[in-house]
């Protein structure tokens, strides 16, 4: 871990200001991802802006019947919140399937969205990785890539986004609210928040340098049946090999989002419309254009199977 200076931000706007004033700065929230990476010098901020005591830890109803979730709300609290449990079950479920009780107690809403990939080559500084060090190559492409993405990949990076929560947020059409150093606020739809790798896999989100997340807004509840099905290599405390978030609403409308498939939570609007035609149809539409390797080709079959499990669960 490189030496850094440390400050506690006084307000969201001040946090954003400090970030712009110190080009090497990073916000630290729960710290569960940032410190992990700093210890390995994958992240090397020279200045840390501690945003933990800014407030922003409330969950409040919005005027149009949705919820505004403060950026610093802990994953445990978000999952356990009454309105979330009642109206956004898929989000509770996604959160509870992630990490461990200890980590969820620390992890924040914003931090969770911004956690970086678990690609093992990204994690090993002796290996080439375009995301960690642009231009060095992608070691995963012809290496160990069983867990890597099959959708929206590029020749430069095939990493996945590891968050479970983000998959549910994408499904729910959440919006990320931010503030910049000059006080400008904007709202970024989840669909646009995470990026595909393209030839700049090091740029992962739509955030500008120093832009600070203040909250995430959920639109009004969809109702219906909410399911989050996470498939993993051990029963708990493991990242998803694949996950499916689904809502079957009362009007018979369906929507699906996927984790473990892409550099961002994966959702294809065309697939949403096919809920009535069953798992195979949804899978086919969601996976159009898939690019697999020998090791991760099973994700095609697994996607369909997991969807089938979701449909079966819905019936039960």
């Amino acid at each position: 871990m490189k030496a850094f200076t440390y400050e506690r931000a006084a307000s969201p706007a001040k946090a954003a200001e400090a970030a712009v004033a110190n080009p090497g700065a990073k916000f630290i929230a729960g710290g569960t991802n940032l410190l992990d990476l700093m210890k390995l010098q994958i992240e090397t901020p020279t200045h840390l802006i501690d945003v933990n005591r800014l407030g922003l830890d409330e969950i409040a109803a919005t005027r149009d019947g949705g919820l505004r979730i403060g950026a610093l709300v802990r994953n445990t609290d978000l999952a356990a919140h009454k309105a979330v449990r009642r109206d956004y079950g898929v989000l509770s479920r996604a959160l509870l399937s992630g990490a461990s009780g200890q980590l969820r107690n620390k992890a924040t809403t914003a931090g969770n969205l911004l956690q970086r990939t678990r690609c093992p080559y990204f994690y090993d500084t002796t290996k080439p990785c375009n995301k960690r060090k642009p231009g060095t190559g992608c070691a995963a492409l012809n290496g160990f890539n069983r867990n890597m993405a099959i959708m929206g990949t590029s020749a430069d990076c095939i990493a996945t986004h590891p968050s479970d929560m983000a998959v549910a947020m994408r499904l729910l059409d959440a919006t990320v609210e931010t503030i910049t150093s000059d006080g400008t606020k904007r709202a970024i739809p989840m669909a646009d928040f995470h990026r595909l790798p393209g030839n700049t896999p090091d740029i992962e989100t739509a955030l500008a340098p120093g832009e600070f997340i203040t909250s995430v807004v959920l639109p009004k509840p969809l109702g219906g049946t909410h399911i989050y099905r996470k498939v993993r290599d051990r029963t708990s405390y493991a990242f998803a090999v694949l996950s499916v978030a689904a809502v079957f609403d009362k009007q018979g409308e369906t929507r699906f989002a996927f984790g473990g498939l892409a550099h961002k939570p994966w959702r294809v609007e065309a697939a949403d419309a096919l809920g009535s035609r069953g798992a195979a149809a949804v899978a086919e539409a969601a996976l159009a254009g898939a690019k697999t390797t020998e090791q991760n080709a099973f994700k095609i079959d697994l996607t369909q199977r997991t969807l089938a499990a979701v449909f079966a669960q819905k019936e039960a």
């Binding site: 710290g31 410190l35 992990d36 501690d50 990490a99 200890q102 107690n105 620390k106």
Partner: peptide
């Protein structure tokens, strides 16, 4: 592990269990 991967460092902070390896003391 020092990386949040094992739980050996679990302590209870302000009534909640956390991994003490993934947080800075001064926070």
């Amino acid at each position: 592990c020092d990386h949040g991967q094992c739980g050996a460092c679990t302590v209870i902070v302000e009534g909640r269990r956390i991994n003490s390896c993934l947080t800075l003391a001064l926070m």
